[in-house]
Design a protein around this nucleic acid. Structure first.
Length: 792
DNA sequence: GCTCAGGGCATTTTT
DNA sequence: TGCCCTGAGC
């Protein structure tokens, strides 16, 4: 292994330092995976046993890729023995071994987020709370956040600060829900995603002997994407590093975009201070993008205060400026993008698969899809429903879960009446109520002998319950001596799931059947793989299969066979990927940021998000914004995002209206613009908001919802007179409308709809409306508001 | 216990 | 605009 030729000096230094802890700050496109790969290889070459190395990633995909690359460099037997995987998969395996120490059985279930939300929902119902105030998704998010910060229900309940906050926010009972939620999961012998980490940290804290075992074993720990770690993950890393004190964390603070999920950028920013003599390496050479793209991204991120100073540079070609496209509407935007794609494929040597469209929210994909279909552009959307989320698959999985964990309430709820067995809501309600009163007895056991446990049902229902539970018991018995595939096949037969799916000849029915077949195939593959790996410690049982499935996501089931299609995905999903051509669409104030910005921290994360988007591009980056967009049931008007102005203009090809900078309606201003002050757009403005740590309400909070509906209507009558009339869709503000400025037949130019002709005027005063026929968008009725005439 | 119509509602989400 | 949930009605 000749590191001299394989790595640049920065990379090499990072690889070769193994005596203590280190932080590797890896800028976008700087060869991070390469460094990680060779670092592991280097450790192995210098005599470290593969069992002593722990490598943690965030996605299965990242883990797989790293293992594949390591296999190419070192002996595959060594590579296989590395302890390597996602935080969740590594620690869920450890927890199965140590289950007794945390009061669960090794067969514990992992609740996915849908299960978790269901539990929350059930509890809210049981407590007779208003689910308008206590929204299950929001409550679950809150629980997740608390867990991510290692706050237990009792600690939470003891904090008066929490108490007051929850009172103010109209969720005074949150602490109680949180407490019940944890208890309910425990009774079900289940844990949610967050629990995997929380239980691990707790296990290590409460059982020093167990911690010693693992901390002693792992002589070297590598963690990828450290900027995305949350408080628990950081804590676990420190615990495991307590013996050998050799940790290498890799990440890029400039790409920390997951704070909404509890990621703490401070974990990487302050990591150096955690260990004595912790060294800092910076990988600053970007091998991915053109100089222009790298520089443009640099000028954007330069505005952030909390970051590790670095200067990412590229020695690739200079590259062209970033084109900024201005569109009237989301449809117009999609059309422009589609046209550009078509022409670049036609005229240049560009493949569809070299192109990605990145957006903020998944819902933005629809308009693009429509347009792509119209233009016969092949595409694929990432982030849809994952295979394992489909109803029929979740049903089969629920049966499997119940087989190994008879306490699993969510699984039972799901399939007790699938296929229909006459066990409806009433029966279920009674059954689960009794089960909650008897947490010691598995709910399935109660179902097996309902009358014996005093369940208040009639004989017929009792018989149905017994029949169902009996079947489950038989399957569970068979499971003791069968492999995962055999038992799944039998399960599909006995439950009639397969027969029912086969009998359904509708399109959806056939697709369900196909999915079940595919699932069975996946179980088969799993068994095969385990046999081939020949690892005697891994049993080919359902528990292991379920563990893998519970921690798998659509990213993993996505077939990576590379047909020639355009990729559509959210910016978040694009992290870590790269494309020759990148289109960033919907770059408007409404979407970037889309919600209220309350602190500089959030503002900076939005900037980082935009940074991530730009740095996905290798050669060409195009940014577009739409001045009107149909969103949340109404047309919303907006202006280019402030972040666009954070990029140095030298790297941008701006549309005319942004160049002059004078035509911009500031949606945040309380009054309409003034010819004297509108002339310059202060690009420094965002950073002038609030000093570091200043959490006061920023001027643009809330503005986004009410103000953005204003837009500009410019009229030019036959003469030279120009008048500008602002239009609004809400009637909330009082103002003087100057309908006199408009007359039927006038040609007008509207910010969002383009050119048009006034058909007629309706109403007067603040109810004045103009019916205008727009060239592109047809007839619109605009309510006229705030007017100001300017003579030119 | 199932179906369908209408109201409420809508960031990002590697596990 | 479309999805998801609820509740009325069979």
């Amino acid at each position: 292994m000749d590191l001299d030729n394989l790595l640049n000096p920065e990379q090499r230094a990072a690889v070769e330092y193994c005596d203590g802890s280190s932080v590797i700050v890896a800028g976008a496109g700087s060869g991070k995976t390469r460094v990680l790969t060779y670092k592991v290889a280097y450790l192995l070459q210098h005599g470290m046993s593969p069992d002593s190395i722990l490598a943690l990633t965030f996605t299965n995909k990242a883990a797989r890729e790293m293992r594949d690359r390591i296999m190419r460099v070192v002996d595959y037997r060594d590579a296989r023995r590395l302890m390597m995987g996602t935080f969740h998969s590594v620690f869920s395996r450890i927890l199965r071994i140590e289950a007794n120490n945390i009061g669960l059985t090794p067969q514990y279930t992992i609740y996915d987020s849908a299960d978790s939300k269901n539990v929350v929902k059930t509890i809210i119902k049981e407590m007779a709370l208003d689910d308008k105030k206590y929204k299950p998704a929001a409550i679950h998010q809150k629980i997740s956040m608390a867990k991510n910060h290692m706050v237990t229900p009792s600690a939470y309940a003891q904090s008066s600060e929490n108490y007051y906050r929850d009172n103010t926010n109209g969720v005074p009972q949150f602490a109680e829900i949180f407490q019940r939620y944890c208890a309910r999961c425990r009774e079900a012998n289940a844990m949610d995603f967050d629990d995997i980490l929380v239980y691990t940290a707790t296990l290590f804290r409460q059982h020093p002997d167990v911690l010693q075992r693992y901390a002693g074993r792992f002589q070297y720990i590598l963690v990828d994407e450290y900027q995305d770690t949350n408080t628990v993950q950081h804590a676990i890393v420190l615990q495991l590093a307590s013996v050998h004190k050799r940790v290498c964390v890799v990440g890029d603070d400039a790409q920390s975009i997951y704070s909404f999920r509890g990621a703490e950028i401070d974990n990487i920013l302050g990591f150096q201070r955690v260990f004595d003599n912790c060294r800092l390496f910076k990988l600053q050479r970007n091998y991915r993008s053109t100089q222009t793209i790298v520089e443009a991204a640099n000028t954007l991120i330069a505005k952030n205060r909390s970051q590790i100073p670095k200067k990412v540079f590229s020695e690739n070609a200079l590259g062209g400026a970033i084109d900024v496209l201005c569109a009237y509407s989301d449809y117009d935007e999609a059309a422009q993008v589609a046209q550009r794609i078509s022409s670049s494929v036609r005229r240049h040597d560009v493949q569809y698969s070299d192109i990605a469209i990145l957006y903020r929210t998944n819902s933005q994909s629809r308009v693009l899809e429509d347009e792509f279909r119209k233009n016969a552009i092949p595409y694929r959307i990432y982030g849809g429903q994952s295979f394992y989320q489909r109803k029929e698959i979740k049903d089969v999985i629920a049966y499997m879960r119940l087989l190994v964990n008879p306490h699993d309430e969510e699984a039972l709820k799901r399939i007790i009446n699938v296929p229909a067995r006459g066990l409806g809501d009433t029966t279920q309600k009674k059954l689960f109520e009794l089960a909650h009163a008897r947490p010691d007895v598995p709910v399935l056991t109660i179902a097996a002998r309902p009358l014996e446990y005093g369940l208040d049902v009639n004989k017929g229902t009792a018989a149905k319950l017994e029949r169902f539970a009996g079947m489950m018991q038989q399957l569970a018995d068979a499971n003791e001596y069968s492999d995962a595939y055999t038992i799944t096949e039998r399960l599909l037969f006995e439950t009639r799931l397969m027969a029912d799916a086969a009998a359904d000849t509708s399109i959806e029915g056939m697709s369900r059947k196909e999915n079940i077949d595919e699932f069975l195939g996946a179980v088969h593959d799993f068994c095969d793989r385990k046999v081939n790996e020949g690892d005697e410690n891994t049993e080919i049982n359902i528990v292991n299969f379920l563990n893998e499935v519970a921690l798998a996501t659509d990213q993993d089931t996505q077939d990576d066979s590379d047909p020639n299609v355009v990729t559509l995905m959210t910016i978040h999903a694009a992290k870590g990927l790269e494309f020759d051509h990148v289109y960033i669409v919907g770059v408007e104030e409404n979407l970037f940021p889309s919600m209220m910005i309350e602190s500089e921290r959030e503002l900076e994360e939005e900037r980082r998000l935009f940074y991530v988007a730009i740095t996905r591009a290798k050669e060409v980056c195009t940014i577009s914004y739409a001045k009107s967009r149909f969103r949340n049931g109404q047309t919303q008007y907006s202006n280019p995002s402030r972040f666009l102005y954070d990029i140095d203009r030298r790297y941008l090809n701006l549309p005319a209206e942004m160049k002059r900078g004078s035509r911009r309606v500031d949606p945040y201003a309380s009054s309409m613009w003034d010819d004297d002050t509108h002339s310059t757009f202060d690009s420094r403005r965002p950073s002038s908001y609030g000093e570091r740590g200043d959490e006061r309400q920023l001027p643009f909070k809330g503005g986004a919802s009410s103000g953005c509906q204003h837009s500009e209507l410019q009229t030019s009558t036959a003469g030279r007179k120009l008048s500008r009339v602002s239009t609004a869709t809400s009637q909330s503000s009082s103002s003087t409308a100057v309908t006199a400025a408009l007359a039927p037949g006038d040609s007008v130019y509207h910010d969002s709809f383009g050119h048009g002709t006034v058909e007629r005027l309706e109403g007067t005063g603040h109810n004045a409306k103009a019916v205008i026929d727009f060239d592109i968008h047809g007839t619109k009725t605009l309510l006229l508001r705030f007017a100001r005439l300017t003579k030119e």
